[in-house]
């Protein structure tokens, strides 16, 4: 495996008095798609928010592209090259699609092709005719695409995707999976927190399983799909 792009070591975080993560470590290599799996409440969203600086970590270190980013402000972490797509999308409803992309826009990074508007619309064709529509009027699926496109407009080296498949109609999942694979092909590393196991399996090479705020498994996604007892014990998913 190449030099990790993002390295999380011994991360502890939580809300108010309640701890959620108890010393989580994981790595992410350039162009890699890692699925972060676990039941509701296992700490997936907390991990992503802490990595983004949105929750102050209580212990542990975050390294990104050779820099120590532990305890940095979110905007500095974003500028260092980490993109964040929140679970509830959080598009700016009063702004148009094009304006949402403009807010996310940052200069391109060395060694990565720039995500121009035309490339973004090629990645998410349904958005192209909507560029002048207010984001608040988009459907849930379109908002999800916009949220990802807005983050990509910042030309990140890595993207933290928090449950992008949640609440989407099944017919939208296939193009979404395609877009994530395209991103990876373009050299963007993706950490995908997901509940939908099949969706994760379709895009991820590697899986990190969280249970009760700690890493229960870190290995190939195929192992997770092959090992029913692992899935049952950590994810509570049969079938």
């Amino acid at each position: 495996m190449a030099e990790p792009l993002l390295a999380i070591e011994g991360l502890e975080a939580g809300y108010g008095p309640a701890p959620v993560l108890f010393g989580v470590s994981l790595t992410l290599a350039p162009g890699e798609v890692v699925a972060l799996l676990g039941r509701n409440g296992a700490g997936k969203s907390t991990l992503i928010k802490a990595a983004m600086g949105l929750l102050p970590p209580r212990a542990g270190r975050l390294r990104f592209a050779g820099q120590d980013i532990s305890g940095e402000a979110p905007w500095r972490i974003a500028r260092a090259g980490i993109g964040y797509v929140p679970e509830d999308r959080r598009v700016f409803p009063d702004l148009t699609v094009a304006e949402n992309l403009a807010v996310g826009r940052r200069p391109p990074r060395e060694g990565l092709p720039e995500w121009t508007d035309s490339r973004l619309f090629a990645l998410f064709p349904p958005l192209a005719p909507l560029s002048r529509r207010r984001a608040g009027l988009l459907s849930g699926g379109e908002q999800q695409m916009l949220a990802i496109a807005r983050t990509l407009a910042g030309n990140p080296r890595a993207v933290l995707l928090d449950e992008p498949a949640e609440g989407l109609a099944p017919v939208l999942l296939e193009p979404l999976a395609g877009a994530i694979l395209e991103m990876a092909k373009a050299g963007v590393a993706v950490l995908l927190a997901e509940q939908n196991l099949d969706f994760a399996a379709a895009v991820a090479d590697r899986a990190v399983l969280l249970a009760r705020g700690a890493v229960a498994f870190d290995g190939p996604m195929a192992r997770v799909m092959a090992d029913a007892s692992l899935r049952e014990s950590v994810l509570g998913v049969s079938a």
């Binding site: 974003a78 009063d94 702004l95 949402n100 996310g104 807005r150």
Partner: peptide, 18 residues
Amino acid sequence: LLIQAATRDREMVAALGV
């Protein structure tokens, strides 16, 4: 644009590198 965006969601604006 940043003013309008931040009026709705300051944290998200920061997470986009502003």
